[in-house]
Design a binder for these strands. Sequence first.
DNA 1: CGCGACGTTGATTTGCCTCAACGATTGTGG
DNA 2: CCACAATCGTTGAGGCAAATCAACGTCGCG
Lengths: 195, 195
Amino acid sequence: MDQKIKSLIEYFNRHLLLDKREVAIVEQSFFQRKIKRRQFILQEGEICKVSTFVVSGCLRTYMVDNSGSEHNLQFAIENWWTGDIGSFHGDVPSKLNIEAMEDSVILQIKKEDLIELYEELPKFNRIFRVLAENAMVSLQRRTLLNISSTAEERYLDFMNRYPFLFNRISNVHIASYIGVTPEFLSTIRKKLVKS
Amino acid sequence: MDQKIKSLIEYFNRHLLLDKREVAIVEQSFFQRKIKRRQFILQEGEICKVSTFVVSGCLRTYMVDNSGSEHNLQFAIENWWTGDIGSFHGDVPSKLNIEAMEDSVILQIKKEDLIELYEELPKFNRIFRVLAENAMVSLQRRTLLNISSTAEERYLDFMNRYPFLFNRISNVHIASYIGVTPEFLSTIRKKLVKS
DNA sequence: CGCGACGTTGATTTGCCTCAACGATTGTGG
DNA sequence: CCACAATCGTTGAGGCAAATCAACGTCGCG
């Protein structure tokens, strides 16, 4: 078996064991791509036609507002999924950009192949239902944090919740994720060092 | 067929047609409750043991922060789902409260019955996968709005996006949903009337 | 009737942004 | 491998967005 797809199979097996036939179907449904740092796998205006699993590396999803600033919605590292589900399901142009922050290896599946996968292997509905529900929980948590707490609290929460990202991502991008300017994050950090 | 459960069946049929047997299983899986205004169906510290479909009325889900303020995460009216998925799936105490804002009729399903439903009727994995994915899209959209826009923009967005809630919910609760104080929402509204 | 939620106003304070500037680091093309 | 550019993290001055606190009239509800 290909080395790269192995990490995806292992990932699925953590949710629901796959037999040989199922593994074979997964293998032929996904294709592999190597992405260089600063390369995009989705740009605003395009329709998102694939779902992406990250084997190695790191990608970020962000939106550009009307004044030209970027706002990070999500970081995806090993064993995370990324893409724009709204654009993917609705066949509408995306407002998001997805860019590699490091050289990365990804596995992708086209929409028609995913639909076929669901038909051939209905148990994948269950896997992706659980994944979507987990994502919902995280997003609800983040929403509550956004409407109820200060930037300092959101920064501390990010540190505690995603230490593995924290050591890997620049402060500029963390600032954008928690919704503050890099300058203000800097003053937060200074204050935290002192105390 | 019971009148109340009919709205749930119609709801499911909009996603995926159910045959007689499937309808029967759904009917015996859900039970009905009438909830009075200001009554809670979930309180902080409890484990959320049911998933809730709203037949009529309106409920709000909120969190109380350490300084005692409430923050609205979600409103649920007719044909919406509510509950705390994190608590429900993880069997952990909830940090959320769900309270009826109007006299309401709801249909609920216990966790064990939902698991059984998934086993007997696997197609429900698909329905709930799609629902969870839709919820993800909304939450991602709200997250981007929270980290990128002003309170005024969030208020206008709420108006345009949820006009049916807008006419039904007090400004206090809208303020809490978009993450501002009622006082500041009042000044936003004054400014909007003038322009 | 009276109490409690609601919507509003104003004064003051605070959190966070904007803009400008700087050294330090990273990266990149010649 | 060096030189130059770009990005990063930081600092400071000033300004604006939004919170806080206090107060008041209105309304619906018990």
